[in-house]
């Protein structure tokens, strides 16, 4: 694991803003959003990593910015990697990983649905859980909605 970490740090240098080794087989990296897709591709293809299983991808809102969380597992080495990155709330865009890991396809759609994050290069970025005509992104911290009065229509966002 140590060798693999050193190789990654050597490859990406400054783009890796922070990293911690939480347990002997779990390491967490915070990377800059510019290299998000590159790092994910490297982790999948590099012989020392071989992270072939995308476990989870999600977004959370700290109020100042959106943070992304990607958890990967390797079926070859049984080690875990968590990648974090931050993107701006006003222009939430980041590269899509759906063509690298098909398993994050629906996760990215859900994050678009709930937070409005645009995943560039996603084959089918449209709402998945909420009705197609829903306005607004409910999981954002500043989402406010009032009941619409019609039981067949949900609450409508207040601008």
């Amino acid at each position: 694991m140590n060798e693999a970490i050193q190789e990654l740090l050597g490859r990406f240098g400054e783009a890796v803003q922070e990293w911690t080794q939480v347990t002997p087989n779990e390491v967490r990296f915070t990377v800059s959003s510019v290299v998000w897709r590159e790092v994910a591709q490297y982790l999948r293809d590099a012989p020392l990593w071989q992270m072939d299983y995308p476990a989870d991808l999600t977004v959370w809102d700290t109020g100042n910015e959106f943070w992304l969380y990607l958890r990967l597992w390797s079926s070859v080495y049984n080690h875990n990697v968590i990648l974090f990155t931050a993107i701006s709330r006003e222009e939430p865009r980041i590269a899509s990983l759906a063509t690298l890991y098909p398993g994050v396809d629906w996760h990215e759609r859900e994050m678009y649905d709930m937070y409005g994050v645009i995943f560039e290069g996603h084959p089918n970025l449209k709402r998945i859980l909420l009705p197609d005509d829903w306005e607004g992104f409910p999981f954002r911290k500043d989402y406010v909605a009032v009941p619409s009065g019609d039981p067949l229509r949900g609450p409508q966002p207040v601008d």
Binding site: Y53, A55, G103, V104
Partner: peptide, 8 residues
Amino acid sequence: EMALAYGC
């Protein structure tokens, strides 16, 4: 391979 790539 598909099962792994999809996270099944």
